[in-house]
Design a protein around this nucleic acid. Structure first.
Lengths: 189, 189
DNA sequence: CTAAATTCTTGATTTTTATCAAGAGAAAAC
DNA sequence: GTTTTCTCTTGATAAAAATCAAGAATTTAG
């Protein structure tokens, strides 16, 4: 539970007095590799804090599987639109490793909002930060070459490249596994 | 003011009783082509509803100017992180046409939050929708070819292609103006 | 109204990245 | 522990898109 409380305090600026009761709404779970948090088209009724593990956020296009992003330790993950608007999910979310997580069900989320009225404001802050991160992601996709995108991601999380199959990372970087292999060889990190 | 009230009601689901007083916090302005709402590095202290006009959201990379997105009639635009967290803007926002807009200053925004406590919740909804749109944008950039991205954008706003210089649209689509020209020729819309 | 600047197109060429194919190595399944 | 599957790399080739260059058309400025 400590990882979650720290996240609420440090990343969202929630005071300890609130962070602890908020964390009580979450339930600890152990999730096996390959399990889904949500599948495209279904309802996503859980918000999930990853204490330890990697999760991929992905969907299917005509021909291939597109990995939008990979989430790791100490990150919140959910299909935000599906969870908040209670509409069918546009994306799927799946564990890439056995994981320790804390989940907040939609029912508990509603209770939380009543019990802690400040929550909406802090959650707004979270959404603002997520938006900012996504704006940055669009920028990297529009402005950088395959090589540059690789270096940018490697700088921010090199551990990921040791622990996950590279085909997921290639997809997330918007290149084929072959191209990623060649780029990596060139930089020999 | 009617366009703004409609937007608040239809797009954010705000009841008329609240939409009208909320809209009173906004101030009408006429903005000339090329004026900036905010410049990279400075503080963005206005949220802006475009009644009529086109605005580009852009930044500079080493070599080129990157247009992230172009906003049109009946859309809200601001550097969200800069406005909400009162930190330096990462992007610039500029009018591409003479525009009629309604602006909400950061000071008035704070008053609005006090006067209409429900505002935070509706704004959260707005942020969720924006996030969802951005997730979609990342998906198009990861999964579609230049041709497909062009067709996708053209379907959603063909008017834009008649009213704006194509170099902005090319940049937003992640291709050069030459490539856009060739793609357009091919489809001869 | 004219000159200058910008926008758009087209062609030729180069660069980047994808695709196809094969094989080595590692991990998982039986 | 052997077989099967998955992962990763490498080479050859093809496709997609960028770059360079030039000129026509349109818009803007004086």
């Amino acid at each position: 539970m400590q990882a979650l409380i720290s996240f609420l305090q440090k990343d969202l600026g929630i005071p300890e007095k609130l962070a602890v009761p908020i964390s009580d709404f979450y339930k600890k779970e152990r999730i096996a590799k390959n399990e889904f948090l949500v599948e495209e088209g279904k309802l996503c009724n859980k918000l999930c804090f990853i204490e330890k593990g990697y999760w991929r956020f992905f969907s299917y296009s005509d021909k291939k599987v597109i990995t939008h992003w990979i989430f790791g330790d100490n990150q919140l993950v959910t299909d935000i639109a599906s969870f908040h608007l209670q509409q069918p999910a546009k994306w799927s979310i799946q564990a890439l490793t056995d994981s320790d997580i804390y989940t907040l069900s939609y029912a508990d989320f509603k209770e939380l909002r009543i019990a802690v009225p400040e929550w909406d404001m802090y959650e707004k802050l979270l959404l603002v930060k997520l938006l900012s991160a996504l704006e940055n992601r669009v920028y990297t996709l529009l402005s950088m070459s395959a090589e540059e995108r690789y270096n940018y991601l490697f700088q921010s999380d090199s551990k990921m490249f040791q622990e996950l199959p590279l085909n997921y990372l290639a997809s997330m970087l918007g290149m084929t596994p072959e191209t990623l292999s060649r780029v990596r060889k060139k930089f020999a990190h």
